[in-house]
Simulated assay, not measured.
Amino acid sequence: MILVVGGAGYIGSHLVEELVKTNEVVVLDNLSTGHQRAIDTRAVFVKGDLGNEADLEAVFGSYPIKAVMHFAANSLVGESVVDPLKYYENNVASTLTLLKVMMKYDVKNFIFSSTAATYGIPDVDIISEDSPTVPINPYGQSKLMVENILADFAHAYDLRYVVLRYFNAAGASASGRIGEMHDPETHLIPIILQHLLGQREQISVFGDDYETPDGTCIRDYIHVTDLANAHIAALESLLNGQNKAATYNLGNGLGYSVKEVIDMCEKVTGRKANVVMADRRAGDPARLVASADKVHEALGWKAERDLEKIIASAWAWHQSIE
């Protein structure tokens, strides 16, 4: 049985929907940001907290867990700056509690949902796994701390793990059952689609004078189901002995500018956006794009859905919940 911690959240619930097709799954989530209705009914759901050792003991003592997939992190960059305690407590200390219980029950396979925020502001166009990790906020720092902890645990306790770093998850499940629903919403694609549904007055573009082809920032967008499949491929690589300790970027290797994303949203929806130019935001790099060559070579994975498919799936989801 596979334990998915944070399986009621956006990425976690999409992973669970794919994972239950071939595995028995138990989800642990405190529902602080996730939604119980997002969890596939084929999975066992346990309401509990990652940092509560008794909650973890109840799960590991009741189910034959053979691997853990960890999505239960706070992930708002701005919030991490004003409330770093929250991020170090949940993202780092609570993960240590999870690892402690895993070691007690001799569960040695771990998939960690990490982030490109570990790279900070890179000085390269395409970020590889060998790029320097110099996070510029507590969120990125907390994720990098866990990555370092995993390496130490692998050396000391024979933990086997895969770290997956990615940028902008987007889109919705082909089933139409689950999609992206954050409160507050901070991601570009759902913000644009909410505007095109009449839920927001305008879209603000933060800077159009960057050194990019159209002057707006370029980011790496990847469909959430592609992400889910990458996690499953990583899990299989641990369970079949292919991997013992690995770190992979998950991206499309191309990147799309803010203007390109807006244009594609207009194309998919057939609606025109009211776009307002705003000042640059501090700390926004011109370009953040990941190389996914390493994971493709090692696991045979690559992103299959392009920007139009990402937005089309998200649009169908947003219309269904309007």
Rank of each mutant, 00 (worst) to 15 (best):
L150P: 01
F45D: 12
V134M: 13
R165A: 01
S320I: 00
G207M: 10
V20A: 11
L196R: 01
D209G: 06
K244E: 13
E24I: 05
T115A: 13
V5E: 09
K143S: 10
D220K: 01
L50C: 02
K294F: 01
D125K: 12
L76F: 14
H187P: 00
L188S: 12
C265M: 01
G34R: 07
G241W: 03
V44F: 13
P135H: 12
K244W: 03
E89I: 12
K47R: 15
I203V: 15
Y88Q: 04
R37I: 05
G51Q: 00
W317N: 09
H195C: 08
M277L: 15
N90P: 00
A234S: 13
I189R: 06
S32H: 10
Y119V: 08
V4M: 12
H14A: 15
E304A: 14
D263E: 13
N137Q: 11
L254V: 14
V134Q: 14
D279Q: 14
N74E: 15
N240Q: 07
R42M: 06
L197W: 09
H155T: 12
N52R: 01
T269V: 02
G120Q: 04
R160K: 15
T41F: 00
F167D: 11
L19W: 00
D29N: 10
V59P: 01
I149T: 10
D293N: 06
L235V: 01
K267G: 02
N30R: 15
T41L: 06
L56E: 03
G176D: 10
G7Y: 02
S94K: 07
V59L: 07
M103T: 07
V124N: 07
T216I: 04
A8C: 10
Y139E: 03
L19Y: 04
G251Y: 00
S237F: 00
T118A: 14
E266M: 07
G7K: 05
A73M: 06
D279G: 12
H182D: 13
G176C: 05
M181Y: 13
K104G: 05
D293P: 02
I2H: 02
Q202C: 07
K21E: 12
